[in-house]
Amino acid sequence: MSNETTSAILSFAEKHHDFNIEDLSESLCKSMDINRSSLLWHLFKLVNSNVLIRTGRGMYAKVTKPIFSPQPADDIIEVFNLLQSNFPFAKFCIYQGEIISPLQHHLSSNRIIYVETERDSAETIFDFLKGEGRPVFLRPGKDIVYRYVDMDSRTIFVKNLVSEAPLQEVSGIPMPTLEKLMVDILRDSDFFYLQGSESEHIIENAFRMYSVNRSRLFRYSNRRKVKDELLSILNNLNLQ
């Protein structure tokens, strides 16, 4: 990426709270030779790097809110290190249920440890953790969670990790991005207690409190087949 073009875009973003590509192009073309496709490519890279965010259709702004980056609890690090040492080639996403709490409207207890891995590895990981004496469920649905799970205990849920799911590394631990968490709450049956009006509050709070990468959010929601539902929620919340 050209440093000169990047600097020019960020300088423009500093002076304009929200801007579209037409205004940006008109401004930059006065001082440099750059076409629309090149400009779009630079904007795409800046959005993916969390330097800019999309605030609407064709609209951009500089990131001013913090990035959602919850710290893994000690027992999350312990579980990850255990799995990493025994399954060094498996891919994981691991996090504690408490990271959802700051986004909630009606606070509910959730101390579950979520271990996500590739579909082909999930049953092997489940058997291993069970053999280690850990309280663990494999891909639990609504009925299993409702009947048999104490959400206030450090029970482990082993789930499928969706390919190309947006992850972030925090203190060496692969954890979900905010965009992944919002979509999974809408889609996964074990999050049934958060779905409906509470999921709308979670999404509203996520946008209010943190920087949201809309491109990442829409791409993942489309992959998980909840994009239409998400767009409807954003429209109702005037976040489109």
Rank of each mutant, 00 (worst) to 15 (best):
G172R: 01
S215I: 12
K30Y: 14
D18R: 12
E200W: 02
R147L: 15
V79Q: 02
E132I: 03
G97E: 03
V51K: 08
K159P: 04
L129I: 13
W41L: 14
H16L: 05
V162A: 09
D188I: 15
I233Y: 15
A90Q: 05
S27A: 15
V47C: 12
V212Y: 05
I185D: 04
A165P: 01
I125D: 13
L10F: 06
N48K: 14
I94M: 08
D150Y: 11
K142P: 01
H105F: 06
L24H: 09
K130V: 15
D188Q: 15
L28P: 09
D18G: 03
Q96N: 08
I76E: 03
L234P: 15
L186R: 13
K91V: 00
I99D: 03
D127E: 13
D18P: 02
T6V: 10
I233L: 15
D143L: 10
I233G: 10
I67C: 01
S7C: 01
H201P: 04
S199E: 14
L239I: 11
Y220R: 08
D120E: 14
G133E: 07
G141Q: 06
E204T: 02
E204C: 02
E198F: 05
L138Q: 08
M209Q: 12
I202M: 12
S221M: 07
P166R: 03
Y193M: 12
F128G: 12
S153Y: 04
I94V: 10
A206H: 04
I67Y: 02
R154V: 09
K142Y: 11
F191V: 03
E132M: 14
G131V: 15
L230D: 11
P166I: 04
K15G: 01
K142A: 06
E22L: 11
V183D: 11
N213T: 08
D74C: 00
R154C: 12
S2L: 12
I156Y: 11
S37C: 04
I76R: 04
R216M: 11
N81P: 02
N3Q: 09
F218V: 07
S121H: 13
D75M: 10
F80W: 07
P102Q: 02
R219N: 08
E78Q: 09
E98Y: 02
S211T: 07
L167C: 00
R57N: 06
L231C: 14
E14R: 10
N20E: 07
T177V: 05
N48V: 00
H201E: 08
Y146L: 15
K225G: 01
P140L: 06
N35I: 09
D184S: 14
L40H: 09
T177G: 05
P70R: 05
G58M: 03
N20W: 02
L217R: 13
Q104W: 00
L10Q: 12
S221I: 07
N81Q: 10
L107A: 05
E204G: 00
K159L: 15
V212L: 10
N213C: 06
R187P: 09
K227T: 02
G56P: 01
H106F: 04
R134D: 08
T117A: 11
V162D: 03
R208T: 04
F126T: 12
